[in-house]
Computed example of a mutant assay.
Amino acid sequence: MKLVVLGATGMAGSRVVTEALARGHEVVAVSRSGASDTSGVTSVQGDVTDVDRMKSLFAGSDAVVSATRPRRGEEHTVPATTTALLDAAAAARTRVVVVGGAGPLRSPGRPGLLVLDDPRYVEDAWRDAAVASVEQFRVCQAHSADCVYLSPAAVLEPGVRTGRYRRGGTTLVADPDGTSRISAEDMAVAVLDEVEKPGGQPHVAVGY
């Protein structure tokens, strides 16, 4: 498959690129700098808000994976950025997997509470990012593009690739004690599994 990965040099995006290459896919890696130290990819500089540019890059691809993250203090830009991304994908008739946040998921054991509003998972320092993930999810819900929103566990950080994870729906994937985590490497496994074999759900949660 030919895949376009946005945010390809970030923590999540770089792992998606590595996993895609390991599976034999052709990868176009898009980032603000256009630089990538990963061999075997086509590195491209691009701004997600440039709809015409993105439409051109998406044309002929089998899927797009968006793993972009706003800089701290720029979380308010997420809705407009996501809308531009989906506009381009819809115009190019390309499916998109958006690697988002845990904020819009239901809190385990508390179905009436979003993760966004559960202090067990969202500290004050990360609330702006969590709010942005909820807004991003709502943009995806409302858009006509072929899109799936993938919410990782509450703690997403570099680690090891085990190839194992649990897949859920609209509730945060967590252990019985409430622990919710996944490595960026296994999150990438989940992303590529969704790309290769779509599960048919518009919102997917993954974690250990």
Score class of each variant (00 low, 15 high):
50 D>Q: 04
134 V>F: 04
182 I>P: 07
108 P>C: 10
151 S>V: 07
5 V>F: 12
104 P>G: 02
70 P>N: 05
92 A>L: 05
197 K>A: 15
46 G>R: 01
181 R>M: 05
7 G>A: 06
13 G>A: 07
188 A>C: 10
123 E>S: 15
197 K>F: 14
191 V>W: 02
178 G>P: 08
192 L>C: 07
53 R>E: 07
12 A>W: 05
160 V>E: 15
110 R>G: 01
143 H>K: 04
41 V>G: 11
186 D>S: 09
60 G>Y: 02
151 S>M: 12
31 S>P: 08
66 S>P: 02
47 D>W: 11
141 Q>Y: 03
111 P>T: 03
45 Q>N: 08
143 H>F: 05
72 R>Y: 09
69 R>V: 09
112 G>C: 04
56 S>T: 12
4 V>Y: 03
64 V>F: 10
26 E>S: 10
135 E>H: 15
207 G>E: 09
49 T>L: 03
70 P>A: 06
17 V>K: 10
33 S>H: 07
102 A>W: 10
72 R>F: 04
171 T>W: 08
177 D>I: 07
83 T>G: 00
109 G>N: 01
129 A>N: 13
162 T>K: 06
180 S>H: 10
69 R>M: 08
90 A>N: 03
129 A>K: 13
164 R>T: 15
68 T>I: 14
116 L>K: 05
42 T>L: 15
130 A>Y: 11
80 A>Y: 08
107 S>I: 00
140 C>L: 00
74 E>P: 00
171 T>Y: 08
196 E>C: 12
10 G>Q: 05
32 R>L: 01
201 Q>F: 11
57 L>Y: 04
136 Q>G: 04
115 V>C: 05
1 M>T: 13
79 P>E: 07
136 Q>M: 03
150 L>P: 00
123 E>C: 07
53 R>H: 13
77 T>Q: 11
118 D>I: 02
5 V>H: 10
161 R>K: 14
4 V>C: 10
118 D>G: 09
193 D>F: 13
159 G>Q: 15
113 L>P: 03
137 F>S: 11
76 H>F: 06
105 L>G: 00
148 V>D: 07
42 T>H: 13
120 R>H: 09
55 K>L: 05
16 V>N: 03
110 R>M: 06
97 V>P: 02
26 E>H: 02
70 P>M: 02
88 A>K: 00
27 V>K: 13
68 T>R: 11
197 K>W: 09
125 A>F: 11
123 E>N: 14
50 D>E: 05
125 A>C: 04
85 L>T: 00
182 I>A: 03
117 D>W: 00
60 G>F: 00
111 P>D: 03
108 P>H: 09
163 G>M: 09
